[in-house]
Structures are given as structure tokens and as C-alpha cells.
Design a binder for these strands. Structure first.
Length: 256
DNA sequence: ATGGCTTAGGTGCTAAGA
């Protein structure tokens, strides 16, 4: 089974990119983030024509997550249990026997922002819920835009980024707390990438892509049963060079 | 150079992203 994640930065703008990508990458499940669409505007018909079922939890302008799958997603959850939040950032579904969770983790804005407090609080509640989900699903993958670069080498310039937003000790600890529930960062099983292939996001501003000023902030975290049969995990960096790209590229994991 | 871009909403600009 192949699972992928992609922060599309508006599914309305990127629908043609997604349809073309699915045609070339016939995967079993694709997690989307930042769809920025209310549910009544979700392009279910176009995706069904492409052969994909969809589950989604969206809102106007901001956030929004979805799961596309070749088999119908079931047992859908659209929020973190016990966490009051009107931001649509999480979606879980069982797809062909595996639990797949699409997450759009908060950005945090700045270390002294209320949004940073919200980010850490959100991660803590995600962690507690994952413990629960892992107790019910042996095969589980939580994937999406985590807005955390786990290690210095997951940035193009550790001297510039370490300690700042996306790379602070608190954020790295929050991500590690997720992993410590019994998950594996699949990327690190194949951690010999070079150049552009080290990253999943490049800023639109300041020549981020041409200069390869990238970060690795989109992840695939798998339960032990899935991690043991993970055969590949990589970013499709070519998408960043297309016309009118998202600032994030798809990350694909192959499970035997 | 924490941004030189891109998006949504709305029609000129602000907010937000990472």
C-alpha cells in the first residue's frame, strides 16, 4: 500500500495539480492539508471521476484537511476528542484496513505568540488521542504538515533556524512526544537524501526554491506494524518546479 | 531582510502562512 501527504495550499487552485499527480501516482490514500474549502465546495465529483473516494473536514479561507482513497474511507473522525476548536486540522479514517490520519498542525507564528501556545496545546491533545487510536488500530499512519523540522539537518541552514519557529526545542519535543507513542518517522528509514530531496517545503519568498532554502516539515509517522514493512519514503520535489505550485510537495511512503 | 510571494476575501487593501 502507498500512502502520501500533500499540503496543497488551496485545493481550489491546486485541483488540476492533484488530478494530474494522481494519474501519475496511483496511490491508495492521499492526505491533503490546507484545502481552504467549506465542505459544500469540496470537489468530490472531479475526484470520483478520477477514481477516488473522499472524506473531508473543511472551512472557508483557512485550514481544511481531506483524505482521498481508492476504497471507501470508514469510521471517520473530524476533530481531536475533548479539544474545543473550530479550526479544521485533523481527519481520521480507516482505509482498506489501515487507520490513516491527515493532520495540519498549527504553524505557531512566533515563539511569543498566543498561536504558539495553541500549537503546543494542540500537539498535546493529538498525542493523547494517538495513544487511544494506536490501542485500537495495529496498522496506523499519521501524516501531514506538522510544521516542525525534527532535526537541524532538516533545515537548509541550522545556524539560522535552530531555536526559531518550526525548530524550537518545545516544538521538537512535541513532535517527539507523538513519535514516543509508538510511531516511526518513515523518512528516517531512508535518510540518505541530498540536495532538494532533503526537504518538503520551500518558501515562495526570497528565491526559496531556486536557492534550495527548504525545510522538512511534512512527515509520515507509522505504527510499528507498518514501519516494519516500509520500503520507501520520499518527497516528489518535481512538483515544486511546476507552474503555480504549492509551497509544499507530496511525500510518499510505500508499505509492502 | 521575519522576507522580496501566494492565497482568500473582495474590489483596496489586510491577514496568514512557515
Amino acid at each position: 500500500m502507498q500512502v502520501a501527504t500533500w499540503n496543497v495550499n488551496s485545493l481550489n487552485i491546486r485541483l488540476d495539480h492533484v488530478l494530474a499527480w494522481l494519474e501519475n501516482n496511483p496511490i491508495d490514500a492521499l492526505a491533503l492539508q490546507e484545502t481552504k474549502l467549506p465542505d459544500e465546495r469540496f470537489p468530490s465529483d472531479a475526484l470520483a471521476e478520477a477514481g477516488y473516494y473522499a472524506a473531508f473536514a473543511g472551512q472557508k479561507t483557512y485550514n481544511g484537511v481531506a483524505l482521498l482513497a481508492k476504497t471507501p474511507p470508514v469510521d471517520i473522525v473530524t476533530a481531536l476528542p475533548g479539544f474545543e476548536d473550530d479550526q479544521k486540522r485533523v481527519l481520521a479514517a480507516t482505509i482498506n484496513g489501515a487507520r490513516v490520519i491527515s493532520v495540519y498542525c498549527p504553524n505557531g507564528s512566533a515563539l511569543d505568540s498566543p498561536k504558539f501556545t495553541y500549537k503546543l496545546d494542540w500537539f498535546a491533545h493529538l498525542r493523547d488521542w494517538l495513544v487511544d487510536e494506536l490501542s485500537r488500530h495495529e496498522k496506523l499512519v499519521v501524516t501531514g504538515d506538522f510544521n516542525v523540522a525534527p532535526r537541524p539537518e532538516d533545515t537548509y541552514d541550522p545556524d539560522k533556524w535552530d531555536g526559531r519557529i518550526l525548530c524550537s526545542p518545545d516544538e521538537r519535543a512535541a513532535l517527539n512526544a507523538l513519535i514516543d507513542t509508538g510511531l516511526t518517522d518513515c523518512w528516517r528509514l531512508f535518510d540518505d537524501r541530498e540536495g532538494r530531496h532533503r526537504f518538503t517545503w520551500w518558501d515562495y519568498r526570497g528565491g526559496g526554491w531556486p536557492q534550495n532554502n527548504g525545510l522538512r516539515i511534512d512527515h509520515v509517522l507509522a505504527s510499528t506494524a507498518l514501519a516494519e514493512c516500509c520500503r520507501d519514503c520520499r518527497a516528489d520535489v518535481g512538483e515544486r518546479g511546476r507552474k503555480r505550485p504549492s509551497d509544499h510537495v507530496p511525500v510518499i511512503a510505500q508499505f509492502e
